[in-house]
Design a protein around this nucleic acid. Structure first.
Lengths: 118, 118
DNA sequence: TTGACGTTTCGACTATTCTCGTAATATCGT
DNA sequence: ACGATATTACGAGAATAGTCGAAACGTCAA
C-alpha cells in the first residue's frame, strides 16, 4: 500500500457520515445495502449521499454492484486489512512492548511487507 | 469510543505529513522522537510541524513529554487499538466470513464493547 | 414507448484545512 | 541576567471539502 492510497482511505473514513456508513456496512457484511437504504439510515440528501459513497468507493474501501434498479454497496475487508497493516508496519522495530495488541493480531496474517526486523 | 473522537483520529491520520510522522513514531516505539528530529525527517517549517503534531496530539494518537529543551513525541498504542476496534465493531454480525483477518485478531483483546452477537 | 423509480452528475455557495513568516514562550549554560 | 536553542502561538492567504437543488441517466413493468 502506498502512502497516498492510505491517506485517501483514512480521509474517506474521517467524516461523521462516511464513518457511520462504513460501520453500517461492516455490520451488514458481504450482503451489503442499497444506496437508498443507506440514505434512509443516515438521513442525507441523495446527491450528498452519492458524494460520500463515491469517496469511500474511489479509495477501495467499499465495492459496488448493481441489482436491478438498486446499487448495492458492501465493504471490502481486504482493503481494511491492508490499511490497518500499513498503520502498524514496523511497529517498535522489534523492541516488543506496549504495542502487542495492535501489532501482533494473528501472526503473519497481514499482507503488508515488513522491513527485515531481526 | 465515540464517533466524533474516531473521526478526529482518522482525520489526523488522513494527511500525508501526519501519516508519515505517525508511522515514523510507530517505528520508534515508546522512546519517541523530539519535535526537531521529526521536523528534520519530514522537512517542514517549524510552525507547520507544530500544527500537525498538535493535530495528532489533540485526538490522543500521540503523547508529549518534555526532556530538557526538547519535546518528545511518541505514539499511544492504546489509542490506535481502540480506533481499529471501533472500525471493525459488530463485524458481519456473526455471519463469519471474509472479514476474519481484520475482525478476529487476538480474540477478546479489543477494548470496544461489542453488541451481543449470539 | 411511455412512465415511474433509484441513483448519479452538475453547478454554486459556504466552511474548513493547510501553509508559512513573524513573534512569543520555555529551558539551558555562563 | 543574558544570549542561544527548541518549540509553540498568531495571523493571513490559497486550496480543498461538504452541502444541496435541479437535471440527467439507467432500469424495469406494462
Amino acid at each position: 500500500m502506498e502512502a497516498k492510497h492510505a491517506v485517501a482511505a483514512l480521509g474517506a473514513l474521517a467524516h461523521e457520515y462516511r464513518l457511520g456508513i462504513y460501520r453500517l456496512l461492516v455490520e451488514q457484511g458481504p450482503a451489503g445495502l442499497s444506496a437508498g437504504a443507506i440514505g434512509e439510515a443516515v438521513g442525507l440528501a441523495p446527491s450528498s449521499l452519492t458524494f460520500h459513497l463515491q469517496n469511500l468507493h474511489r479509495c477501495g474501501l467499499i465495492v459496488q454492484r448493481r441489482e436491478s434498479r438498486s446499487l448495492i454497496y458492501s465493504v471490502d475487508f481486504n482493503a481494511m486489512n491492508d490499511l490497518v497493516g500499513y498503520l502498524t508496519e514496523n511497529c517498535c522495530e522489534g523492541s516488543g512492548g506496549s504495542c502487542e495488541t495492535v501489532c501482533k493480531p494473528t501472526p503473519a496474517s497481514r499482507s503488508g511487507k515488513r522491513k527485515k526486523v531481526a
